[in-house]
Every structure is written in structure tokens, then in C-alpha cells.
């Protein structure tokens, strides 16, 4: 660990934020945190709430674990990380229940599942245990943005094509497309279409970014 003073927003630190958005996206490249990402993308609102919750849990957990990194015995580190994450998730869950009860009902078990969202565990293991708090914060920030991006894009298309609304606002109806014979594609609301939409997202991303292409 280098003790040299580094500028807070040096190139290296900014890279920590920028990388996860595309080259090293947690969902489409690292393949972490897919479970929750797909299940709550029927509408934009729960998707945004989910992204915010993950953002909070991830940044805080990264900083806390990074502060404790020299005290944690490596044998029991997983259970310690789980306890830190679970505590934060309880905070989020109680807050959601208190202020946006209907959204929290909609998310049902998926708030609890932030605990086992592998993206958080993965970043703690891979980054926070070996880096100082500020860098870990930047890493958490970047990765939760990278998590939010596909989530919101997929939710945008599924809500627009499936229900014709955005955040519950009837966009298609206001544009008057129904009178021209347009109809909602009810299939987009079904769970399997989340997977297909996400697959198409990955496809487009990899066509733009050739170095991500896999060998089968």
C-alpha cells in the first residue's frame, strides 16, 4: 500500500468510476448481480428505487469494510462482510417501508436479496479488502452506476413497449399512437422477456466494443 498523497480525483481514481460503466460493467461483463437486475425491470420506478438502494448499500459497505480491512481475520471475512451488508440492507428496508410503502411491496423479497447480490460481495472481496476507504468509495460509486445503467435501460424499454407508460405516465396514449392502430406488446411484461431484452443489450454493447467478444 503506497502512502504517497494522491489527488482525490486523479486519473486513476476517475478510472475506477468510469470503467464499470462500459468496459467492466458489473452486469454485462463481470456477470454479477443479475438476479435482482432482471426481476424488477418491469417498470421504471422500482428499477430506480432498486438502483438507489444498491448504490447506498454498496458505497457504505465498501467504505466500512475498507476501514476494517486490517482488523478482519481472513478466515471469517465472508461472514463479517455478510453482517455488514445485512445491517445496511435492514436500514434500507425499514426506510423504504416507512416512506414508499407501495414500492417496497412491489420489490417484495428483492430488497432482502441485496444481501446476496453478488456484485456487493464481489466488490468487497475484490477491492475493498485491499484498498483505502476513498478508493473503495469511488469503486462502489462506479460499480453501482454500472449496475444502474443496464437496469434502467432494460426497465425503460420494457415499460414503454409493454405497458405504454414511463414512470406510470401514459406516454403512448398522450402521443395519440393508439388511434393509429398501435398496440402494447403484452409479452414484454412477462419475466422471460427481461432475459431477452438484457441479451439484446449485451449484444449491442459488444458490437460497439469489440474487445469484449467472448470465445464461445
Amino acid at each position: 500500500m503506497s502512502d504517497k498523497k494522491e489527488a482525490l480525483f486523479s486519473k486513476k481514481n476517475l478510472k475506477l468510476v468510469k470503467d464499470p460503466l462500459d468496459d467492466n460493467n458489473p452486469i454485462t461483463v463481470q456477470v454479477l448481480g443479475i438476479c435482482s437486475a432482471l426481476a424488477i425491470t418491469v417498470q421504471l420506478k422500482p428499477a430506480v428505487v432498486m438502483a438507489l438502494s444498491t448504490f447506498f448499500v454498496m458505497c457504505t459497505a465498501n467504505v466500512v469494510v475498507s476501514l476494517m480491512r486490517n482488523m478482519i481475520p481472513s478466515r471469517i471475512r465472508i461472514i463479517i462482510q455478510l453482517v455488514v451488508i445485512a445491517t445496511l440492507v435492514i436500514l434500507v428496508d425499514q426506510t423504504l417501508k416507512a416512506f414508499v410503502y407501495d414500492v417496497s411491496k412491489e420489490l417484495s423479497v428483492f430488497v432482502g436479496l441485496i444481501i446476496t447480490n453478488c456484485i456487493i460481495m464481489g466488490r468487497l472481496e475484490a477491492f475493498a479488502l485491499a484498498n483505502n476507504p476513498w478508493k473503495s468509495f469511488m469503486d462502489g460509486f462506479g460499480n453501482s452506476l454500472g449496475y444502474a445503467l443496464p437496469l434502467i435501460v432494460v426497465a425503460f424499454f420494457r415499460e414503454l413497449l409493454g405497458a405504454g407508460t414511463l414512470f406510470g405516465y401514459p406516454v403512448i396514449e398522450k402521443l395519440g399512437l393508439y388511434e393509429l392502430g398501435y398496440e402494447n406488446n403484452g409479452m414484454m411484461i412477462l419475466p422471460p422477456m427481461a432475459l431477452v431484452t438484457c441479451g439484446v443489450y449485451i449484444w449491442i454493447q459488444r458490437m460497439r466494443n469489440k474487445k469484449l467478444i467472448e470465445e464461445n
Partner: peptide, 21 residues
């Protein structure tokens, strides 16, 4: 090429999901 690996797995899972429905 761009669909290899992860992308095609997602889409196949989606198709399997439709079958299970």
C-alpha cells in the same frame, strides 16, 4: 460474434422461460 457467450445464454434462458410458462 457479439452474441457469443453471455448474450446467447441470456436469450436461450428467456426461451426456456417461455417454455416453462
Amino acid at each position: 460474434p457479439a452474441l457469443r457467450g453471455l448474450g446467447i445464454t441470456f436469450i436461450i434462458t428467456g426461451l426456456m422461460g417461455i417454455a416453462f410458462m
